[in-house]
């Protein structure tokens, strides 16, 4: 479904640096995610996980390095040996193919669940309303909320809101999905329903980069697991390797706290 058939990586980050003022938050991050792969990112608070994820869809601009998604440079165009910043509309076009799910859901509170899902297809892709409504209903069905189409976000539980947010991102038929701690704002008993949806997505072959503290999910679903600390990727490998016998002492220290 998401295989681009060229075997080229879906995400290729090389030497990403990013500073806020004088604080260097990302200090040379390299990451490659192949099509259909699920990469989980773990690490202590403030290590730059969210910032890195936001660099992938250019919600944050990077200071140096290159970020490519499906072979396309994000945020810039290379002509000759010069880089040109992309115009806002071009960045918007790149973002259509990259879905993002936020820790705090960020659903549009003035729109019902189904209107949230229809919004981007209608305004960005100019899909006609009827068709958009049909596919939105299908998507909400897929995340188990077919009967909650006409509820406003304030009438839904946290887990339901996050599932609507996933459906909303899927409505643009993205090639890549980014998740920033999608279950961290949820009550423990609601975490499962969101992880189930994500598990289903992974099974269907969606390429995903997931920042998470759910080690169980990472162990079960992820193809690769990276541990970030102080703006760098300290350790990377299969979840089994990294979780069962971490090589770096900082990984060991972190895992001993969370596991």
């Amino acid at each position: 479904m998401t295989d681009n058939g060229h075997g080229r990586p879906m995400v290729e980050a090389v030497g990403i640096h990013k500073s806020f003022g004088h604080v260097e938050v990302l200090r040379g991050v390299d990451l490659t995610v192949l099509p259909g792969e699920v990469a989980c990112v773990i690490g202590p608070s403030g290590s730059g996980k969210s910032t890195f994820l936001r660099c992938i869809n250019h919600l944050e601009s990077i200071d140096s390095g290159t970020m490519t998604v499906d072979g396309e440079l994000i945020g810039y165009r290379r002509r000759g040996d010069k880089l040109y910043e992309l115009r806002e509309s071009e960045v918007a076009r790149q973002r259509r193919d990259i879905g993002m799910v936020f820790q705090r859901f960020n659903l549009f509170p003035h729109k019902t669940a189904i209107e949230n899902v229809m919004e981007a297809p209608c305004t960005v892709r100019r899909t006609n309303k009827k068709q958009a409504r049909e596919s939105a209903r299908d998507l909400l069905d897929r995340v188990g909320l077919g009967n909650r189409c006409d509820n406003y976000p304030s009438q839904l539980s946290g887990g339901q809101q996050q599932r609507v947010a996933i459906a909303r991102a899927l409505a643009m038929e993205p090639r890549l999905m980014l998740f920033d701690e999608p279950t961290s704002a949820l009550d423990p008993e609601l975490v499962g329903e969101v992880l189930d949806v994500m598990r289903g997505l992974a099974r269907d072959g969606m390429t995903m980069v997931v920042v998470t503290h759910e080690m169980g999910f990472a162990r079960e679903v992820a193809d690769s697991l990276v541990f970030m600390d102080e703006g760098k990727i300290v350790e990377a490998g299969t979840p089994r390797e990294v979780l069962a016998n971490p090589k770096h002492e900082r990984t060991q220290a972190f895992l001993s706290k969370v596991l």
Partner: peptide, 27 residues
Amino acid sequence: VDHGQSEAAGALGMSRGQTLRRIVLPQ
């Protein structure tokens, strides 16, 4: 209006104008 709203709209590929008209201004 919470900044997360325009961020979510931006992540969906909506332009600044669309975000303002459809998401931020109504709220």
